[in-house]
């Protein structure tokens, strides 16, 4: 099992190494090709990891003694929350790179990361609410982590809405880069203040099983799912970037050659 996590993590790792190594070249056709290659082997791996992790978590592990089986939602709630947060940072860093070094590819990466992150945040929220029902009896529980997730979703929606509001797409990219950077600075502040606020009003509320507290038999599927979600995020990011590249470069020669190998020079 852990070899697959290693594979996904390694995939992500050497992707970043390649990315920083090649970022000087950053030319669209090269990126289009390399993204395709990575997706070709990463996509099946991700789907496999997701299926195995879900099956393992759902069917094979024993229920939590306090919450019974409803805790199994942890296998999608926690990974999607973790990757959604990481996704925001990926978007903000891509924005920073596109602002500072004026790299169009980073701008494409940022534009591609936003919807995926928003979708993952929504999954985290939805599963959090579903999990809250059996354990706390209420659909919406103003728990610190779930509230922070809600704010993260608003941040994502803000970035997407700002991008759509601009007519000139380049200016939109730069404006979103600034907004995501401002957001990145504010996320730790928001998380701390929400945690503090939550402890002020309900200090005694039960805290459902944090990652470390659960015993090893439940931990492995969780780690696998987190790795799978990371791979999922990378996959969606790369596929979105490919589509975005086609959209922006639709008039260039390399796209024409792509469509018709013997197309006009």
């Amino acid at each position: 099992m852990s070899s697959r996590i290693g594979a996904a993590q390694k995939g992500l790792y050497n992707l970043t190494v390649m990315w920083t190594f090649f970022h000087k070249l950053g030319s669209p056709p090269w990126l289009y090709g390399i993204a395709g290659a990575i997706v070709r082997w990463l996509l099946p791996l991700t789907i496999l990891a997701l299926l195995v992790g879900a099956a393992w978590g759902l069917l094979f592990t024993s229920p939590d003694f306090r919450q019974g089986n409803s805790y199994r939602i942890i296998y999608i709630h926690v990974p999607s929350a973790v990757v959604a947060l990481a996704g925001y940072y990926v978007m903000a860093i891509a924005g920073a790179v596109s602002l500072i070094w004026r790299m169009k590819m980073a701008d494409v990466a940022m534009k591609a990361a936003a919807p995926v992150g928003a979708a993952l945040t929504f999954i985290a929220l939805f599963t959090g609410a579903l999990w809250g029902k059996p354990t706390w009896g209420t659909w919406w529980e103003w728990d610190a982590r779930i509230t922070s997730m809600l704010i993260l979703l608003f941040l994502y929606l803000g970035v997407v809405a700002l991008y759509e509001a601009f007519d000139n797409k380049e200016a939109a990219g730069r404006a979103c880069a600034i907004l995501s950077l401002v957001g990145m600075v504010n996320i730790p502040i928001i998380y701390k203040s929400v945690d503090w606020w939550y402890s002020l009003h309900q200090p005694a509320s039960i805290k459902f099983s944090g990652e470390s507290a659960i015993d090893s038999s439940m931990l492995y599927p969780l780690l696998l799912m987190i790795g799978a979600f990371y791979a999922l995020f990378t996959c969606c990011l790369l596929m979105n970037m490919r589509a975005e590249l086609l959209q922006r470069e639709s008039r260039t020669a390399w796209v024409r050659r792509l469509v018709k190998p013997d197309g006009p020079r």
Binding site: A54, L58, N69, S70, R72, I73, I76, H77, S80, I123, F126, T127, L130, W131, K133, P134
Partner: peptide
């Protein structure tokens, strides 16, 4: 709840 959550995900 569990299955609905997984299905939506």
């Amino acid at each position: 709840f569990v299955w609905v959550a997984y299905f939506v995900t």
